[in-house]
Amino acid sequence: MTESSLGRDFKEQQSNPQAGADRSGSMFSGASNFNAANSQFQSATTINIEHDGDAQIHQAAMTINNNWKTDDVFAIRKWLKAPDPSTNFVAACDKRTPGTGEWILSDPQFVEWREATSGVLWIQGKVGSGKTFLSAAIIQELKADSASLCCYYYFDNCDNSQARTNARGLLQSLLLQMATRSGGVHPALHELYTKCTEGLMEPTTAELSATLEVVSKDLSSVFLVLDAMDECSEAFDVLKHLAQLKKHTCIAVTSRYLAETDYEVSWYIQNLFVRMLPNT
Rank of each mutant, 00 (worst) to 15 (best):
D218G: 13
C158G: 10
N35L: 10
S233V: 08
H186R: 07
A116Q: 03
F223D: 01
E112R: 12
Q13K: 08
V111K: 15
L134N: 03
G119N: 02
P278I: 02
K81F: 06
N166R: 15
F34L: 08
I104L: 05
L200H: 06
S148C: 02
S161H: 09
A179G: 10
E112K: 11
S106M: 11
H58L: 00
H186M: 05
Y193A: 06
D22A: 12
Q40S: 11
A210S: 14
C250L: 07
I64A: 11
Y154G: 07
H248T: 02
W79M: 01
K246E: 13
D237C: 04
A116R: 12
S221K: 13
K126R: 10
A188W: 02
L192Q: 05
D156L: 02
K11D: 04
E102S: 04
K143A: 08
I138S: 05
E234Y: 07
F10Q: 05
T205I: 03
I269K: 02
A21M: 01
L208P: 13
Q244F: 05
Q42E: 06
Y263Q: 08
G53L: 06
N67R: 13
G199H: 05
S182P: 04
N48C: 01
A206L: 14
P278M: 05
S24N: 04
G20C: 11
E207H: 11
L226T: 11
T63E: 14
G199M: 11
Y152A: 01
Q59Y: 03
Q14N: 02
V214Y: 04
Q59M: 04
H248D: 03
A44G: 10
L212C: 03
E207N: 10
A163T: 05
F110V: 13
G7D: 07
M1Y: 11
P203M: 01
L226P: 09
